[in-house]
Simulated assay, not measured.
Amino acid sequence: MIVGYARTSTTEQEAGLSAQLRDLEAAGCDKVFREQVSSVDREARRELEAAIDYVRDGDTLIVTKLDRLARSVPHLLEVIDGLKAKGATLRILAMDIDTGTPTGKLMVSVLGSVAAFEREIMLERQREGIAKAKAEGKYKGRKPTAQAKSEEVLRLLGEGHGATEVAKLTCIARASVYRIKNGGDAAR
């Protein structure tokens, strides 16, 4: 059986998900698991876990691109090992790689390492850019969300709502509600 897995990081990426589903259908997938969740949040990737649980001996799990499956090399190798233990293989369409072959296994490991390296370099550059901007006085950080909601928080508290309820209604931390209530720095 050919099992597909499609993922986008956010629900706003409908076009990306549609393209993956189209490619997986063209590859002959009998069943497709899909989700819209960040690859960083491995705990929330329930459909990936379901796809791996679903495959059986002789099946192939197909993804369109490597980054749709795993963000890190250890996670990639964990997925491949899980599939191998079940007698299944992994195929990545964009690279025409199949872990059912020795060359495919090597290529996935190398490409996973390169992807992890690129991400680390990007994060390093981002940190350097932020440090430079801070030194030049140009970096302000993100806009404080609690401070912008202080009037609403005070109104809700004045209406008799409790701090926990106000925090839920305004989508800010309960500690921020207390800071606003006590006249402290609401920007934290």
Rank of each mutant, 00 (worst) to 15 (best):
I52F: 09
E43F: 15
E35M: 13
K105C: 02
K31C: 07
R56A: 14
V37K: 10
V79Q: 08
L69M: 06
A70F: 04
A44T: 00
L21T: 09
L106Y: 05
D41Y: 13
S72L: 02
R91A: 12
S38M: 08
D59T: 10
V40C: 11
L93C: 06
D98F: 11
D98H: 12
L83N: 06
C29K: 01
G100R: 08
R22F: 03
A44Y: 00
G82C: 01
D23A: 14
R68G: 09
F33K: 04
K65F: 00
T64R: 12
M95D: 14
L69P: 05
D41H: 14
G82E: 03
A70D: 02
V32H: 10
V63I: 13
D41G: 12
I80S: 10
M107E: 01
T103A: 11
D67E: 02
V63T: 11
G58D: 09
D81C: 01
D23P: 00
M107F: 13
D96L: 00
E49W: 07
L24A: 11
V32P: 07
E43H: 14
T101S: 15
Q36N: 14
M95I: 00
A70P: 06
R56W: 06
I52L: 15
A88W: 03
A27W: 09
A94M: 04
I80E: 06
L83E: 05
L76A: 11
G58Y: 06
G82A: 13
E35A: 06
S38Y: 12
G100M: 11
R91C: 07
A44E: 15
R45G: 12
L66N: 04
K31I: 12
D23Q: 13
I92H: 08
L93F: 01
D59Q: 08
D59V: 08
R71F: 07
R22A: 09
R46D: 13
V40D: 12
L93R: 01
D67P: 02
Y54I: 11
S39W: 05
H75C: 04
K31P: 00
F33M: 04
Y54Q: 08
G100S: 03
A51Y: 01
Q36H: 11
K31L: 15
K31W: 06
S38N: 07
R34Y: 09
A50D: 07
D23K: 08
R42K: 14
R34I: 05
D81S: 14
V32G: 06
A50T: 07
H75N: 10
L21M: 13
L24P: 00
D41R: 14
A85W: 03
D59F: 01
D53Q: 15
R56G: 15
E35N: 12
D81V: 05
G104W: 11
P74K: 11
S39G: 15
V79A: 05
G100L: 04
E78Q: 11
D96N: 15
T60K: 14
M107N: 02
P74M: 08
F33P: 02
R56T: 09
D57M: 09
L61Q: 10
R68W: 01
D81K: 12
L61R: 12
I80H: 10
A51H: 11
L69K: 06
L76D: 01
R42N: 03
M107S: 10
I92N: 04
Q36P: 03
T60E: 13
V73H: 02
R42A: 14
Q20D: 03
A51L: 07
V32K: 03
D96Q: 13
D23E: 14
